[in-house]
Write a protein that binds this DNA or RNA. Structure first.
Lengths: 215, 215
DNA sequence: TTCACATTCAAACGTATGTTTGAAACTATA
DNA sequence: TATAGTTTCAAACATACGTTTGAATGTGAA
């Protein structure tokens, strides 16, 4: 057992560097040498602390996963404590607020982790297929259940679909993976301020959720 | 000049195999050997026909880009020919119809190309940064302009944001990159039928677009 | 059939990858 | 200061990567 300050510093530097590089270049596009150079540590340090590149990937997520889950659950808890029958707007607000808190707090991972999550949707790694649902399953269930109560005119299936749309739009917007940037030279939506993003998001998502059922 | 049937067959087999593999494993995660084995061609064939792996990536997109752009433009043209003042619902319908046509027509790339586009949002390759906006800029401008007319109560910026949300949700849904799948063991939204997806999408997107302005 | 060209192929190219090694340097306890 | 355990380091490991080569094969026109 060491846990010396210096040892922690090394493994944390690796995690910080890897988190950023995985966002920028993806898992396969990020080499061990790039990570260790960026973190200013010897290349063997990754295997020493995390066993393998896969192990590092897992560790990068595990560091952020629990705090973010706790945050979102705390927000829905607080909402349901304050209001007996929260509406769709309240629930969206609690959900967006969670992402906003995460994005603005570097201690939780900040925007980097939001982007990493957004990338993980599309670029799945076997390592995440089991660990993420285990921890975030509860989060989804809680918000989906609250939405179902607030939107009794919708079937369970339709509520899940709308929650899916909501999550896609929200993470994509916060992560700055501007879909339009791929299609336009100078998109008008390049504001990076998360508060501005959430201000634009709210009316869109609330209206979308509360819309009449399909058909 | 050869353009023999066999030569075409080889380069097309490579394109078909690469398109699928790039969706599954991304650009960096897909090796030349995997592509050529999957296409049942010699490994040197990729460099012979496309110059390099980058050249192949470009070719995979170039084959699909133009037909899809033509399709979406044709749909907005038809709409504006039929209706003098199309509403948000009409415009969303035309946009979704384009993705639906693309997704259901293997000759246009089918769902595979939809997924490839969805992946390209998050995993940008320098090669796409210039070619995509050049061809899709017009598409975005046309739909954004039509939406602006239909939603005069919204600022230009807000229209662009909402179009961005719309596009994120739509592509994510069609591509089947189920965000909730990363978070739940058995999401209730695993229907893969694009028609069913668009039925769920429509009311959500139309309501979101027509919502009152922020603040 | 001949010939010029297009296409295929097995093999090798140099480089980059993730990982391992074993010794050196450091740290904390006695 | 001596010693045991932790951490760092340069170097090398085997393997995989994208690419190139040069000969073999196939193809269509003269």
């Amino acid at each position: 057992m060491a846990e010396s300050a210096k040892a922690q510093e090394t493994s944390v530097r690796i995690l910080d560097a890897a988190e950023i590089l995985f966002v920028e270049h993806g898992f396969d596009g990020t080499s061990m040498r790039l990570i260790t150079q960026s973190a200013a540590v010897n290349i063997a340090a990754v295997n020493y602390y995390f066993g393998s590149k896969d192990g590092l990937y897992r560790a990068v997520f595990e560091r952020r996963t629990e705090p973010f889950a706790k945050l979102t659950i705390a927000n829905i808890d607080a909402l349901e404590r304050e209001k007996t029958a929260p509406g769709a707007e309240d629930i969206v607000d609690a959900f967006i607020k969670s992402a906003l808190q995460l994005g603005s707090d570097p201690a939780l991972g900040g925007l980097t982790f939001v982007k990493l999550l957004a990338r993980a949707y599309v670029e799945p790694h076997p390592i995440l297929k089991e660990s993420m649902p285990r921890r975030y399953g509860e989060v989804v269930r809680r918000y989906a259940a609250a939405l179902q109560k607030a939107l009794p005119h919708l079937s369970e299936t339709e509520v899940h679909w709308r929650f899916h749309f909501l999550t896609s739009a929200m993470f994509s917007a916060f992560a700055g993976n501007n879909v339009l940037r791929l299609f336009m030279e100078q998109p008008k939506t390049n504001a990076r301020d998360p508060m501005q993003v959430s201000r634009m998001l709210m009316p869109f998502l609330v209206a979308g959720l509360t819309a009449p059922a399909a058909n």
